[in-house]
Design a binder for these strands. Structure first.
Length: 850
DNA sequence: GGTGACTGCCC
DNA sequence: ATTCTGC
DNA sequence: GCAGAATGGGCAGTCACC
């Protein structure tokens, strides 16, 4: 990766080092003489990285001797925790905010001597600054921010440093700015809240924290919240700054507060379209999901963009990404080296969203280039932290602890608070907290039944909370968010959770969720679990659906049912595995082209003859389902159900479900409504592999690893696992694994694996092309891993030749259980055992036909 | 016209 | 999908 | 318990490129 001389690398005490290193390297990018050091020392790289992380907290400890490195890593593990706690800069804690990175960069530049005392000071200073920043919660609306933008625009590549200075000064200057909350007022407000804390907390009621937030709102709204400039397009920087502040906290109410204030100022800006755009950006979506608009941009394209935009080599961008764990900060760092001939117009909230949409809808020959061109333009126009968030947005991971639910809460708060203000309503903290909580419930409910900001945001601005339900109603034609189920560990837990209520169990079929709508106009629509419009995928269902209606006692004019679409062999009359279902085409499918038949297993009825059943209990909905449809063999069936309270009966039913080629059971209370907003995981799922000692558990050998990203930066994020084949005396990959690890596991395992690092894969490793891990290990450790299923794999190599002549076996839903220190790698699950596991499955793949 | 990289979406 | 974690 | 963010296998569709 870097061609930086070791001396410079040694000095790197933090992520700032990353910037410095990159800067140095990028100047050599053009020369690109020593491009391929890449093969060089991946091992060293790993150590270096561990150390980098470690020194983030301890500054200039210059421990580079190999003997000390191990120690460093251990210390690093402990420190990371501490650092996280104290909310100081830490790459692992969460997103290292871009501003923080800039600060680090500055420190590095100034070559500040970093004795531990000095560092402590710095930390404290930063804490202060953060506090100040948080308190200027509405400051991003103010005119003085405009100045800041202007300033930052003018001094592009020095801007990070400049911002430092400016931020320092803000506290003083801000007081003179009319309109927005001054920092000092905010500070007072916060102090007030803090001092009240104790009293309020003891009052309980709605929830002390909510009340505290309400109090905060009251204090804030006693001042005027003004827009940056009325009726001027909302700058994207407002949103980026808000993200930046949000990135600095993990407290959800704090996040809500920050976003609420930004939404409020946008509302006051008077451009309703801007609020909608901001809501989309904050939730990192570009359109309602059933509109089927997606970016078509992934890491690979973004990396190419960054390389082209900065004139750097792709390999270097990748290396930076690996090291930083965040493509956003790579974009930030790269961007600052770029000079532009002229100043592009500042980005606006609406403009960025619009550009995202154009990128999404660009298709056809040369579309990739066009998309890249637009992204590069965005990056060039980006100021401050904007570029980082643009990249993250395009990646589909904001990674700041903000997603739809919190956006909905903040949107609600903003609407309510602004409405209160307009109406002159002034509530006490408790009353306000109560009002906000109820309003959030309403908005979440409405959004789950009408998942479209295009509809909900304008409605909120128009009629507010009270008229919202009336205005945004569930109707066939648009999907409802589906009810989901929560994993349980066994029959006992189910009985425990549903101890006092009547419940029912249904088979959990292994297919894909299908929400089938019959509209008033007679048309049919089918939506996926994620509200994608899957109608084109199931022309066969569409054409026959009306045959399944039970129209004897009256005409059914409209209906919505919840089903599982399962691949079905109508000749042999049996359910086929999920893998078969997934081979069905998705677009432009004609009925005569359908090769994989499906059976619909219906289990709920959400709408019938013009009436929503979402608020009805399960018992009523099920009756509606049973009475409105009739079963057709191999095509349309009701999910097999049983109602019982008996432990043994439940267990028997579970066994039956497994024997019937399904995944297990879904357990539902009979009185529960279909309102995922109330509890998104209101149903329970009972699968064999959730239970201890049941399901397939294998002992496997880690032979490689990938560097983690995001909150896994600095440790491995995933590992390559293999089984042992005695016949060929080789290790054959069976899956990657990246879940089931606690943070401590990851630290421990990284440490345990370090002595086994090797430069290149052993000759006796059989692994798929294109699945080369970042680092290879000697086959020494054994881990116990759980899986739901085994499948014939197009890539993995386990048991190759034993079940299929050319294909290996892979694990479905692999997760780490524990380390098996008592086992030698040769004692790992062997290839024959893997094959046996596969063959023991009730529902094997049988599609070797042709 | 075929192939492979990339992406999104199922689970 | 599964799992872990902070609130 | 919620919400968010890490991560899995594997398929079809799209587009660049040969």
């Amino acid at each position: 990766m870097s061609s930086v001389p070791p001396t410079s690398a040694k000095k790197q005490s933090s992520l700032a080092g990353f910037f410095e290193k990159r800067k140095a390297q990028s100047s050599e990018d053009g020369a690109e003489a020593r491009e391929d050091d890449d093969a060089r020392e991946e091992v060293g790289n790993q150590k270096e990285q561990q150390q980098t992380t470690e020194t983030t907290t301890t500054a200039t400890t210059e421990n580079n001797s190999p003997t000390q490195q191990k120690e460093n890593i251990e210390v690093a593990a402990k420190k990371r925790k501490l650092v996280k706690k104290s909310e100081v800069l830490d790459a692992n804690a969460k997103a290292l905010s871009f501003a923080e990175q800039a600060k680090l960069k500055l420190e590095q530049k100034q070559q500040q001597p970093k004795t531990s005392a000095a560092l402590k000071q710095t930390e404290e200073k930063e804490e202060d600054e953060k506090d100040a920043k948080k308190n200027i919660s509405v400051a991003n609306v103010s005119d003085e921010k405009d100045e800041e933008y202007k300033a930052s625009r003018e001094s592009d590549d020095e801007e990070e440093e400049d911002e430092e200075g400016e931020e320092e000064d803000d506290d003083d200057e801000i007081e003179d700015v009319e309109g927005p909350l001054s920092a000092s007022v905010q500070k007072k407000a916060k102090k007030k809240t803090k001092s009240k804390n104790g009293k309020e907390k003891s009052e309980a009621g709605v929830g002390a924290l909510q009340v505290e937030l309400a109090q905060k709102y009251i204090d804030q709204s006693s001042e005027s919240i003004s827009s940056w400039k009325e009726n001027t397009a909302t700058p994207f920087g407002i949103v980026a700054d808000t993200f930046e502040s949000i990135a600095e906290t993990t407290k959800r109410l704090e996040i809500t507060n920050l976003l609420t204030n930004t939404f409020r100022s946008i509302i006051r800006g008077g451009l309703s379209g801007d609020l909608l755009a901001a809501v989309y950006l904050a939730s990192n979506t570009i359109a309602p999901q059933h509109d089927g608009i997606d970016l078509g941009i992934g890491d690979a394209t973004l990396i190419k963009c960054l390389a082209e935009a900065t004139g750097r080599k792709e390999a270097n961008i990748k290396a930076d990404y690996r090291e930083a764990g965040d493509l956003g900060s790579v974009a930030m760092a790269s961007r600052s080296t770029q000079r532009t001939m002229f100043q592009p117009a500042p980005l606006t909230v609406k403009g960025v969203l619009q550009e995202f949409r154009v990128i999404a809808t660009t298709a056809g020959t040369n579309s990739v280039d066009q998309k890249k061109g637009r992204i590069k333009k965005l990056l060039v126009a980006a100021k401050g932290s904007e570029a980082g968030y643009i990249v993250r947005a395009l990646q589909g991971k904001l990674r700041i602890g903000l997603a739809q639910q919190t956006v909905n809460a903040a949107l609600t708060h903003a609407i309510v608070l602004e409405a209160n203000k307009t109406a002159g309503i002034k509530l006490g903290a408790n009353a306000l907290a109560d009002q906000l909580l109820k309003a959030v419930d309403v908005v979440k409910l409405v959004f789950s039944e009408c998942p479209s900001y295009d509809l909900v945001v304008p409605a909120l601005l128009d009629v507010g909370i009270d008229g919202l339900q009336e205005k945004c109603q569930f109707k066939p034609g648009a999907p409802v968010k589906p009810m989901l189920a929560k994993p349980t560990t066994g029959v006992a837990e189910v009985l425990n959770r549903f101890s006092d209520v009547e419940f029912t169990c249904e088979y959990k079929y292994d297919g894909e969720r299908a929400q089938v709508h019959l509209l008033e106009d007679g048309s049919i629509k089918i939506f996926s679990r994620n509200q994608e419009d899957n109608t084109p995928k199931f022309p066969d269902i569409v054409s026959k659906f009306k045959n399944y209606l039970n129209n004897v006692d009256g005409k059914i004019t409209s209906v919505v049912i919840d089903c599982e679409a399962v691949a079905y062999d109508r000749e042999q009359d049996k359910i086929l595995p999920f893998q078969i279902l997934s081979t069905r085409g998705k677009k432009n499918i004609k009925i005569e082209d359908v090769k994989v038949q499906v059976a619909l297993y219906a289990f709920d009825c959400l709408y019938l003859n013009g009436k929503s059943l979402l608020r009805e209990p399960m018992s009523v909905r099920r009756l509606a389902l049973y009475s409105s449809f009739r079963e057709t063999k191999g095509e349309f069936l009701f999910a097999t159900a049983k109602t019982s309270r008996d432990v043994e009966e439940l267990q028997v039913f579970l066994d039956e479900s497994i024997a019937a080629n399904t995944e297990g059971l879904i357990v539902k209370t009979m009185d529960a409504t279909y309102e995922p907003s109330k509890r998104s995981l209101n149903w329970l799922k009972l699968k064999k592999d959730y239970m201890e000692g049941c399901g397939d558990s294998l002992d496997l050998v880690p032979i490689g690893a990938w560097h983690g990203r995001g909150k896994r930066t600095g440790v491995y994020g995933a590992f390559l696992l293999a089984c042992y084949d005695e016949d060929g005396e080789e290790f054959q990959t069976i899956c990657k694994i990246g879940t089931g690890f606690s943070e401590i596991d990851l630290e421990t395992l990284s440490k345990a694996l370090e002595p086994h690092l090797i430069e290149a894969p052993r000759s006796y490793y059989k692994y798929p092309e294109g699945m080369e891990p970042d680092l290879w290990f000697d086959a020494k450790l054994v881990w116990e891993v759980k899986a739901a299923d085994l499948s014939i794999s197009p890539t993995h190599k386990a048991a190759m030749g034993l079940v299929d002549p050319n294909k290996g076996i892979a694990l479905r839903f692999p997760r780490f259980l524990r380390s098996r220190d008592d086992k030698e790698p040769e004692m790992a699950t062997n290839a024959h055992q893997v094959a046996d596991f596969y063959n023991a499955q009730a529902n094997k793949q049988t599609f070797e036909k042709e």
